[in-house]
Design a binder for these strands. Structure first.
Length: 486
DNA sequence: AGACATGATTGGTA
DNA sequence: TACCAATCATGTCT
């Protein structure tokens, strides 16, 4: 309903009221808004049969006041303010006010009818729920931890403080902060605007009847408008969270190759424990640490351990499926392992000799230069020589007690008791390496360095007893232990 | 672009 | 619960 129609209606009612009151005027029939065309050709009702000159002045008054109201919007603010004050003081104002009250009474029903409670917007509810679930909305505590935990659980590990998750949380916190800042801004703006409108309405209530319900309704409208803005904010926040999620958590399936170093460490362990390549939980943890898989995959030990488990699971399967393919790799690592061990032992022996001046010089001398081999083949050769060569100290099929062999090499004067404990451990290490090597090399002197010794006829891994004190030959004591060790 | 390698996931099993 | 086997999905190589 346009304002003009309303004014016309108002004029009508005003006239009627005044008519009823009869004291003010006999009739306002025939009043036309001088100088103002009523929209839609709507004219005031015809005269009520009174055409007395007494009413002319009042008609003029009403025409005047209505004209002023109608044109007030065309004026400048100052002029309008001045005019408003004038209207407030106008002698017809009370009458106008009562007419407005009446109109209000009549239209009140329709207003109330239009004021049905909005059902909660399902989309908004969805957004709210999501923001809550993602830790953006709701209590600050552990923002996003729920989502992070969920993601961690989904990725097969328990919730932990991995780098990725902390990174995720950091970013989520940023989003959360932005969200709350914006939300606060919106709320503040909403409150300010509401206050402003309420002030206006209060002020207007001096000239027209405004019920508290109407104010309430107006506030409701404002809030709805602002909540639609809020919804946009929530929507974009949700989008940001989804992007973040996909980048950090849902991308868990994205494969990133381990570093070469890590793969090497894992392979070394695998091939040196080929008879039973099932690292214990501790071994996995240590491998994970050693591998620095953590550098790219996160610090959390749980996830990394599961990665190690994955790796060994994959490795076992793939190895078993295609042993031939892994032959070369196995040779390589076997050689490497042996060479490293020999290195360690040589160093230990030299160390012991240095520490024991009485120890006679033995024929068992290993010089570093001898181990500067640059190809697997030469390593193979070296190994073959080592184990089958003329020294005869290493009788492989039953490599026997390395320590004893060394004793015999060094002659009677070489007393085991004289050898330092470190030498003993190194010797042990070497002994195990040799037995390990022997474990997956049935014929070291033959053409093949390596055969799939650990596999049984069923395709499963033999429950071979891993040598006692399985220590990674490259690391020495304190290194990764197999679960079956000891 | 396609083949292959490889880390991750899934469903079943002991 | 750890493991196997199959599979997925992505990285890397040619």
């Amino acid at each position: 309903m346009s304002f003009s129609i309303c004014v016309a209606q108002c004029t009508d009612s005003l006239a009627a009221t005044m008519d009823d009151q009869a004291r003010i005027m006999q009739s306002i029939g025939g009043v036309s808004l001088a100088g103002h065309s009523v929209q839609g050709g709507m004219a005031l009702p015809p005269p009520h049969g009174h055409d007395g000159t007494d009413g002319d002045g009042r008609k003029q008054d009403i025409g005047d006041i209505l004209h002023q109201i109608m044109t007030i919007t065309d004026q400048s603010l100052d002029e309008a303010q001045a005019k408003k004050h004038g209207l407030n003081c106008h002698r017809m104002k009370p009458a106008l006010f009562s007419v407005l009250c009446e109109i209000k009474e009549k239209t009140g029903l329709s207003i109330r009818g239009a004021q049905e409670e909005d059902p909660p917007d399902p989309q908004l509810m969805r957004l709210d729920n999501m923001l809550l679930a993602e830790g953006v909305a709701g209590p600050e505590k552990g923002g996003g931890s729920a989502a992070a935990a969920a993601a961690a659980a989904a990725s097969g590990g328990a919730a932990d403080n991995s780098i990725e998750h902390s990174d995720y949380r950091a970013k989520l916190t940023q989003i959360r902060q932005i969200y709350h800042t914006e939300l606060e801004k919106y709320e503040q703006a909403c409150n300010e605007f509401t206050t402003h409108v309420m002030n206006l309405l209060r002020e207007q209530s001096r000239t027209r009847p405004i019920s508290p319900k109407e104010i309430e309704r107006m506030v409701g409208i404002i809030h709805r408008k602002f909540s639609s803005i809020q919804m946009q904010l929530k929507q974009s926040t949700c989008e940001a969270v989804m992007i973040l999620r996909s980048r950090f958590l849902d991308a868990r399936r994205k494969r990133r190759n381990f570093s070469k170093q890590a793969t090497e460490i894992l392979n070394e362990y695998f091939y040196s424990h080929l008879s039973n390549p099932y690292p214990s939980e501790e071994a996995k943890e240590e491998l994970a640490k050693k591998c620095s898989i953590t550098v790219s995959q996160g610090v959390g030990s749980t996830i990394t351990v599961s990665q190690v488990s994955n790796w060994f699971g994959n490795k076992r399967i793939r190895y078993k499926k295609n042993i031939g393919k892994f032959q070369e790799e196995a040779n390589l690592y076997a050689a490497k392992t042996a060479v490293n061990a020999a290195h360690a032992a040589a160093a230990a022996v030299q160390n012991s000799q240095a520490n024991s001046p009485t120890t006679p010089n033995s024929g068992f001398q290993m010089k570093d230069e001898e181990f500067q081999l640059d190809s697997a083949e030469s390593k193979n050769t070296l190994l073959s020589n080592m184990f089958t060569g003329s020294s005869g100290s290493f009788n492989l099929p039953n490599s026997g007690d390395m320590f004893l062999s060394m004793q015999s090499l060094n002659g009677d004067s070489y007393q085991g008791a004289q050898v330092g404990a470190n030498v003993q451990s190194q010797v042990d290490t070497l002994r195990h390496v040799i037995s390990q090597t022997a474990g997956y090399n049935d014929a070291l002197g033959g053409n093949t360095m390596y055969s799939p010794h650990g596999l049984n006829a069923n395709g499963g891994w033999q429950d071979a007893t891993t040598p006692s004190s399985v220590i990674s030959p490259t690391e020495g004591p304190g290194s990764v232990h197999s679960d079956t060790s000891n």
